[in-house]
Nucleic acid binder design. Structure first.
Ligand SMILES: [Mn+2]
Ligand SMILES: [Mn+2]
Ligand SMILES: [Mn+2]
Ligand SMILES: [Mn+2]
Lengths: 218, 218
DNA sequence: TATTTGTATTAGTTTAATCTAACAAATATA
DNA sequence: TATATTTGTTAGATTAAACTAATACAAATA
């Protein structure tokens, strides 16, 4: 059984490896805010447990076993976030920190029950897919809002950042998942947009915000 | 902030000190299944934090601060058990182990929300009182079933043991909190009883079982 | 009271997870 | 290519929480 610490390393490796499957010690160190020598020694330990393939000076890579165990921690995290929002009445901006702790509870029954009570949801409150019990996760064909063109009408499908500040910012503008958004203008020099959605006929979104919103083109 | 380990020591001290407020290193060591030298050194640490009053070779005693912090951990434990039973559909025999982990989550909002959704319950699924937010806990005037007399009619109010085995044993006999129980006979040599309750007109309960059932006399 | 038994402490070791300082390898730059 | 910078590793220290072995104290018993 993996410790809380090991689970956090696995999760970080999984999330950082989305693109090419490779992660550097440096990246991981920065992401976890843990110094490089500590990361190196944990990688040796996880390699010992066959969760990571590690060779000196080579990029890190989760093994199949490591990928599965990481996905199962992420499953617990996302089910928890969904439960907190759907069954306990928390806002989507409040749940990440709590889930960060509950994801380490060791009790298959507990998460099974959550899953069941939620009706086996496929996405968490921020639009991220929930891995299944075998650790498989379907990756979706979303685009960043910042990559869309003037005139496009898109549906807000997910957010890539889950900090309380950012989500409160979206709350204040009534930007929720599922909303239809129309792009009116794009400022090419800073990537900011003027968009309309719901009752909001003209909202200005900075380039940074547009980068963090994932949309589905209709 | 107290670590998970410290929280477990505080809780154990609180539970063992119910009678006279004093606990020996030996008792605590046995209860936690941790060797005495480890307990001694943790007591010094908790004394440093003003949670325990410790002098060599003297009995251990929680300070007022220690008592309050212990009660707040127990509050988290019992609210969790209640939530698992009432809101998630677990049986009372399944919840202790999960609560043993969730009691260490650091999030006032999470437990506030549970409390609220449960309608501010005063007892957990095993009949134990839930301390309030300030750490106060009302202790009730229950008797052991084993201390009752032939002919007494009592209401099952709480159980003093929460192991899965014991609670499954009670489930099998449909013994639930709130039931009215009538004592038909008592075997003086082993303390076992013949009782009737609900649809059960004549059930035999061993002395051990009778010791673990707390009842309210009518 | 002297001795035995049980309880508690001290001293020193272990493991997990972190750190800093020093050094080595790989990569980027001049 | 030579040098500088960035990245990664090694060595050694630290802290929390556990352990064992040895020793000291306290309580019970002879
Ligand atoms: Mn999250
Ligand atoms: Mn976490
Ligand atoms: Mn319990
Ligand atoms: Mn616990």
């Amino acid at each position: 059984m993996n410790s809380l610490t090991e689970e956090n390393y696995l999760k970080a490796l999984f999330n950082l490896a989305i693109e090419n499957g490779e992660v550097s010690v440096n990246e991981l160190s920065k992401h976890l805010q843990i110094k490089m020598p500590t990361v190196t020694s944990m990688m040796k330990k996880l390699a010992e447990k066959k969760l990571v393939s590690y060779e000196s000076y080579k990029p890190l890579r989760l093994t199949e076993k490591g990928r599965r165990e990481a996905a199962l921690v992420i499953r617990k995290h996302r089910l928890t976030e969904m439960f907190l929002v759907e069954k306990m009445g928390f806002g989507w901006e409040q749940v990440h920190e709590i889930a960060e702790q509950i994801e380490h509870i060791h009790s298959p029954e507990f998460f099974e029950k959550m899953d069941e009570l939620l009706g086996f949801p496929r996405f968490d409150p921020h639009g991220s897919p929930i891995p299944d019990k075998t650790g498989k996760m379907e990756w979706l064909h979303y685009s960043k809002l910042s990559d869309c063109k003037i005139g496009d009408t898109v549906r807000l499908a997910a957010v890539t950042h889950t900090s309380e500040d950012f989500l409160k910012f979206l709350n204040a503008r009534e930007l929720k998942l599922g909303l239809k958004i129309k792009i009116k203008t794009i400022e090419s020099f800073d990537g900011s947009m003027l968009v309309s959605y719901g009752k909001h006929s003209s909202e200005h979104l900075s380039g940074l915000v547009c980068e963090r919103l994932l949309v589905e083109k209709e």
